[in-house]
Design a binder for these strands. Structure first.
Length: 562
RNA sequence: GCGCCUGUAGCUCAGUUGGAUAGAGCAUCGGAUUUCUAAUCCGAGGGUCGCAGGUUCGAAUCCUGCCAGGCGUACCA
């Protein structure tokens, strides 16, 4: 609805401007691109533009005077048009405030009701392919709360991008190789020996968590027996088995968290397939690497990094960076217009070198977009929960899921800007009261369902065909405000997707729910007036559809009853 | 030292490309249910937008400099 109205307003203003010039009311001037905003106050109309302020410099008149002339001339043209009912000029600053005609608002609702889902979808993406890599936790332990937030934000962004017309692939990069794997293998191996009765001085830099003991208890004997092969092979055996079983656990956690990964890429395979060798050879061929102190270095300082980075250690081992470079180089050949990575805040220093490496290959580093998601702190009411990973005391995503459930967990993780550190109060997320925003939104959805049930019971008839209902009876300010809010949904989805601002969706849903709860308290949907009842049922249905769609984008259920 | 993020009501935070009197929830206080779910609604109080300059019709928003907090600054991942 709004795009059409905006186009209409632009046309009205430019023709008013031309006429003003003809009549000598204002000097001739070209209209700059219009900027619109939705006024906070009802008295300022439904849509406002600052056209007069933008023109002030060009025509050398005060904004308020220009606005007055324009609104006067537009006012003369409004009869016969059905989108705009009225225009007013703000006499102080020069805003032009437009009031959208109720019939135009109602027409928007008809479109929503006639849609069968996907009302919020837009074509902004033009079916371009986007690769979204997120979570990507090492298979060395359970997913943490930090992973949980990344998973929630990443998954919701994927949903939003899909709704905005992109084709999204969710990818998980598995760091199943390297130092951490060795430490994992050793950790399990040592715990295993401990279980066998040996006194072990467990190293502080090994994985301390209780889950390591549990793995050590469950690990099957190697074919050759525990002593039949060398210690190095035993450790490798332990590492392989442990990472495989931890991966199974992670898959289960993601599944229960509502996250479906489309593509799993193993670091081991990237190395084994020769991808790393190839990438290093090309870097060298392009003259962007060199040997020093027995190590191979990437000249990342040529690409905006603060210093050069090691690709292959003097020990001969590959660094994580080299396989990551190879992995990301591979992403470029897969036909994506955009490559998005989700990383924790402790990795932000890594951005320059990775993007630099893409530039070193002659690839466009702008295609690669790194999104940093800040950490969360868990609370039980006022009490802060310990997050020490070293001691293995961290709260896992699984524990959060057990405590508050998938809906609340996902909703809370997404609710804040990703740049903000999140305070996640488990006690609040569990509460079934009005201070819990998840329930607040879900309740609005369920409440509407209850109205429908009540109507069917008391009237003894089926719900009307909503798309065919005459909406003319919807004239209350609260009703039109609700519809206008509904019409904003597609823009909101698109803006959240393009700006990677998932938190806009919970905010929007809470506002919509608040409008509906308020409307519900002040007005009765079901009444003696059959036409009004039908129109209000249709309005409620529209609200319910958008709530359900928004919750679906968040991966949160929209309950029929609560 | 340098880099990234953050600083808005007692608390947790919104605030689109600079726009009208800076908003919401919680907490506090006061109200609302013979009527479709009170997991709801209505109202009140509460602010030097970290500080100081600058840019302009106009700054929480942009620029510069400070202050405070978090994270990073590995031949770890």
């Amino acid at each position: 609805m709004y795009p059409a109205v905006k186009a209409e307003i632009a046309e009205l203003i430019s023709s008013a401007l031309a006429e003003a010039a003809d009549r000598g009311l204002l000097p001739a001037a070209e209209l700059p691109p219009l900027e619109f905003q939705i006024p906070r106050e009802a008295g300022h109309g439904d849509l406002a533009t600052n056209a007069a302020m933008l023109l002030a410099g060009r025509v050398r008149r005060p904004p308020a005077e220009i606005a007055g002339v324009i609104s006067e001339l537009i006012g003369e043209r409004l009869s016969g048009r059905d989108m705009i009912s009225r225009v007013e000029a703000d006499p102080r600053r020069g805003f032009l405030n437009f009031f959208i005609a109720p019939s135009a608002v109602q027409a928007g609702l008809v479109r929503l009701l006639a849609s069968s889902g996907g009302f919020g979808n837009t074509a902004a993406g033009g079916s371009r392919k986007v690769l979204l890599e997120f979570v990507s936790a090492n298979p060395t332990g359970p997913l943490t709360v930090a992973h949980g937030r990344q998973a929630a934000v990443g998954d919701v962004l994927a949903n939003l991008l899909t709704a905005a017309g992109f084709e999204v692939c969710r990818e998980y990069y598995l760091n199943d190789r390297g130092r951490q794997m060795k430490i994992l293998g050793r950790s399990v191996y040592l715990r295993r020996r401990e279980l066998a009765g040996e006194e072990i001085d467990f190293p502080a830099d090994h994985y301390q968590g209780e889950y390591i003991r549990s793995l050590a208890r469950r690990i099957p004997d190697p074919e050759e027996g525990w002593t039949g092969i060398g210690e190095e092979e035993v450790v490798e055996y332990c590492g392989d088995w442990a990472s495989a079983s931890l991966l199974e656990m992670i898959r289960g956690e993601l599944k229960d968290f509502g996250v479906a990964i489309d593509s799993w890429v193993s670091e081991k395979e990237v190395v084994a397939s020769g991808g790393v060798k190839e990438a290093l050879a090309e870097l060298s061929a392009r003259g962007h690497s060199y040997e020093k102190d027995g190590a191979l270095w990437f000249k990342s300082s040529d690409f905006g990094d603060e210093k050069d980075r090691v690709l292959r250690k003097s020990s001969g081992e590959l660094t994580y960076l080299s396989s990551d470079i190879a992995y990301h180089r591979g992403k470029y050949g897969r036909g994506f217009s955009s490559l998005i990575d989700f990383w924790g805040p402790d990795h932000h220093g890594y951005i320059a070198r990775l993007k630099g490496s893409m530039a070193a290959f002659g690839l466009d580093p702008e295609i690669l977009e790194v999104v940093i998601v800040q950490l969360s702190t868990l609370y039980e009411g006022k009490q802060k929960l310990s997050m020490s990973t070293r001691l293995g005391e961290f709260i896992s995503l699984r524990q959060v899921l057990d405590k508050v459930g998938k809906d609340a967990a996902r909703y809370f993780f997404v609710r804040r800007r990703k740049e903000s550190h999140l305070d996640f109060d488990l006690e609040l997320a569990r509460k079934q009261t009005n201070d819990n925003p998840v329930y607040y939104v879900q309740y609005a959805h369920a409440r509407i369902n209850s109205i429908f049930k009540k109507f069917q019971e008391s009237a003894g008839e089926d719900l009307p065909d909503f798309a065919a209902v005459d909406l003319a009876p919807l004239t209350e300010p609260g009703e039109l405000e609700l519809v206008r809010k509904l019409m904003l949904f597609p823009e909101q989805v698109e803006s959240a997707a393009l700006g990677r601002n998932c938190h806009l969706i919970p905010a929007y849903l809470e506002e919509l729910a608040a409008l509906f709860h308020g409307y519900y308290s002040a007005n009765r949907v079901i009444s003696e007036d059959r036409k009004l009842t039908a129109a209000r049922l249709a309005l409620s249905r529209g609200v319910q559809m958008v709530l359900a769609e928004g919750l679906c984008l968040l991966g949160v259920t929209a309950p029929e009853s609560m």
